[in-house]
Design a binder for these strands. Structure first.
Lengths: 252, 252
DNA sequence: GAGTGGTCTAGACCACATC
DNA sequence: ATGTGGTCTAGACCACTCG
């Protein structure tokens, strides 16, 4: 295949590696370079454009990390086949999308209190009898005066710090942990399931009992992988959906 | 902060940039380098380890793409704060996990036929009256003799190619499109929702009607973003869940 | 102006695949 | 033996930040 040389401007403010990356990307998207075909060698490209091989490699590295190309030592660099079977659902806290739509939305604190630990809670946090007290939060997220999700959160109560209204500014579980404990949130595990809502949840969200809902359980860990926070959120099934785009769609 | 020099072996088969990457990564995980703190400058690191600055940059690039560090031109490179609010649910075709568990699982073709396009189908595929025929598949995925998911798939029937039993080897929608049409699957859009199953779905999956289920609608596009395939899958809510790990957990 | 990261070069040697 | 990509070097110039 032939890559046209005249499309690279070495005096441009746009980095050469980026111009080259876009150039090859475009050829792949247009189908000039088809899956399985090999790119010119790095040496060839560097000669053709009169640029350093390191610059060529930088461009190819971008293509590799975009998943459009793969390199094999000793053989060459080849156009990849788009993999469309990997579904990646990305949700920035589930509510991000709603916030971005510019809707009038808010978090409401239903309840915040210090509770005594029961056996279940101590097991979940892997603590012994010495940890007696936990913080307990119940919040509702709503948009345009419609309640969309309901969440309960637990974290160890280790600082004697008052619970402020300002929690509502950052009601996320990692946020609460950072303010109310001396633990540092380091990693998180989230599990998404479907369920039908309980009567209590239905009443809070204003939907029919046994309606289908998303259920997201979250555990936050500190650097030693000790659980330091846990939450369970219920999202209205008729208001939330996850969308995923895959493959070599154009973003620009 | 101080990075110990004796831990880099320049004669090792392990690339220097990778050793340095792991070294800094470990310091961040252990908390020797805290979020917001700055790394030594690239120049300093290259002097301390007696390696080229380009090699240092390669190591830092890895840290950046791992999200553990961010660079600011003219200021320095800093340790990032773990972001735990981004939930990323990755499911390799939803069933990958089950296959990897080594369960005895299989796809069953319930029905495969050529159908006449109705108005709804033509609208979904953005085609006019000239496209009359579509392929229609109904499949069930099961493991250990328990039915787990049910899927219907549509694609334009443009090749006069017989429908073979071998479809079962790759029953994915992109696979069907590649074999039965002249279109090239290039990108995909997937939407995940929760729902309660219909009576038909309940009968097929052997669950109670109105049970909660995952519902995944998928549209496949060719390079011109023309829809060339569509499917709707129903996953038993009591057998599927999505798990997501986030932050700076150790993988090794 | 001094120091930082961002880009780029023109080489070098290596491991690997292929013939 | 040849050619490929993978790593590494020792410089260079630039844009940017900050005092």
């Amino acid at each position: 295949m032939v890559i046209q040389a005249e499309t690279i401007d070495k005096s441009s403010v746009i980095p050469i590696y980026y111009q080259l990356f876009k150039l090859i990307e475009e050829q792949i998207r247009r189908g000039d370079l088809k899956p399985g075909e090999s790119l010119p060698t790095e040496h060839e490209i560097s000669l053709r454009f009169e640029i350093s091989r390191m610059t060529v490699r930088r461009a190819i590295a971008e293509l590799v990390s975009a998943g459009m190309v793969y390199a094999q030592q000793g053989r060459g660099t080849f156009v990849a086949t788009p993999k469309l079977d990997n579904i990646v659902f990305e949700l920035n806290d589930f509510n991000q999308e709603i916030k971005e739509r510019g809707l009038n939305c808010k978090n409401t604190l239903l309840e915040a209190k210090i509770i005594r630990a029961d056996k279940e809670l101590r097991e979940r946090f892997q603590v012994g009898e010495e940890s007696k007290r936990f913080l307990y939060f119940r919040t509702v997220f709503s948009a345009e005066d419609e309640r969309l999700s309901y969440e309960v959160k637990y974290t160890i109560y280790s600082k004697s710090r008052p619970i402020l209204e300002s929690e509502l500014k950052d009601p996320s579980l990692p946020g609460l942990i950072a303010t109310h404990t001396e633990y540092v949130p380091m990693s998180a595990k989230k599990v998404l399931q479907v369920a039908v809502c309980t009567e209590e949840e239905a009443a809070i969200l204003g939907i029919a009992p046994n309606s289908p809902v998303f259920l997201v359980e979250q555990t936050i860990y500190d650097p030693d992988l000790k659980p330091v926070g846990w939450s369970k959120a219920v999202y209205r099934g008729d208001r939330y959906k996850l969308t995923s785009y895959d493959g070599w769609y154009k973003k620009d």
